[in-house]
């Protein structure tokens, strides 16, 4: 078991009343596994993902439970040690490829950043690694992309860049928070195929977050269904789609717009 989350609870304290956005969430992620988190908007998926990535602010919120990675609890790990894992063992790609990249920094510089922070490499070795990943994410004309700025690329290309930047350090866990929601349908399926290929080739575990059940069904091995910050149901993806136990899950599945017709 690579990652284990035990009784994760997240509360906001920035309003008068504390607001519980994630409650008693437990799950685990194995090596090479693609685990889906599905649920309607506002159900706490992103908060869970950000907690695992160590990106929740320290102030104004209270977190309890455990996020165990290599016998370390990420919730209580000193900041410096946490930074050592971020971008090295745990990487993230976000929903909005249009704004997730720094507009005034060249693509090459952004993709290489994790290597700069976590690896001792010569400039040539680093550039070679970056070029390798720009090609692995199927960006044509990778030399040009290396020198380009984000605004010169389309949304799909930027999401490929984000994937390259996340994978360049060969992390063990890739957290993908709605990575295709902002993209149009054809680009979406290309990105999904790419993620599957990367999972197969590098063995990286993926925490795949989406509100889109048909996507979850296509790519995940196991799935967690969330509602209002709590886990409703979890288990093997095919099993849950065939025999959902909870009413909420049944309702979600029945609302998928005719998946089979698309094939």
């Amino acid at each position: 078991m690579l990652l284990e989350i035990k009784n994760l609870t997240i509360e906001f304290h920035d309003h008068d009343r504390p607001e519980r956005v994630v409650e008693d969430v437990s799950f685990s992620l194995d090596k090479g596994e693609i685990l889906g988190i599905v649920g309607e908007s506002g159900s706490g998926k992103s908060m869970t993902a950000l907690a695992v990535a160590g990106l929740l602010p320290r102030k104004k919120m209270e977190k309890s439970g455990e996020i165990l990675f290599e016998e370390k609890n990420l919730l209580t790990l000193p900041r410096h040690d946490l930074r050592g894992l971020q971008g090295d063992e745990i990487s993230v790609i976000f929903q909005e490829p249009m704004t997730a990249l720094n507009p005034t920094m060249k693509i090459g510089k952004q993709v290489e950043e994790a290597l700069l922070l976590h690896r001792h490499m010569t400039d040539e070795e680093r550039k070679a690694k970056v070029m390798e990943w720009l090609e692995k994410v199927e960006l044509d004309d990778s030399e040009r992309v290396y020198e380009a700025y984000p605004h010169e690329l389309s949304g799909g290309m930027r999401q490929r860049v984000m994937i390259a930047a996340a994978m360049v350090s060969d992390p063990q866990i890739l957290i993908a928070d709605e990575p295709t929601t902002a993209l149009d349908v054809t680009v979406q399926s290309q990105i999904i195929k790419l993620l599957l290929k990367i999972n197969k080739d590098s063995g990286v575990s993926i925490l795949f977050i989406s509100h889109d059940l048909s996507l979850i069904k296509q790519i995940t091995h196991n799935v967690i269904v969330m509602q209002k910050g709590r886990i409703v149901e979890q288990g093997d993806t095919d099993e849950i789609f065939l025999h959902p136990k909870e009413e909420y899950t049944k309702k979600l599945i029945s609302s998928i717009p005719s998946v089979d017709l698309r094939k």
């Binding site: 900041r79 971020q86 990487s91 909005e96 950043e113 994790a114 922070l117 984000m162 930047a165």
Partner: peptide, 22 residues
């Protein structure tokens, strides 16, 4: 408050590095 700051943090930058680099 922009998204690229969160991305920078996710790569393991410290607050000072996010500030100066990005």
């Amino acid at each position: 408050n922009k998204d690229y700051v969160r991305t920078a943090y996710s790569r393991g930058n410290s607050t000072m590095q996010v500030m100066y680099r990005h």
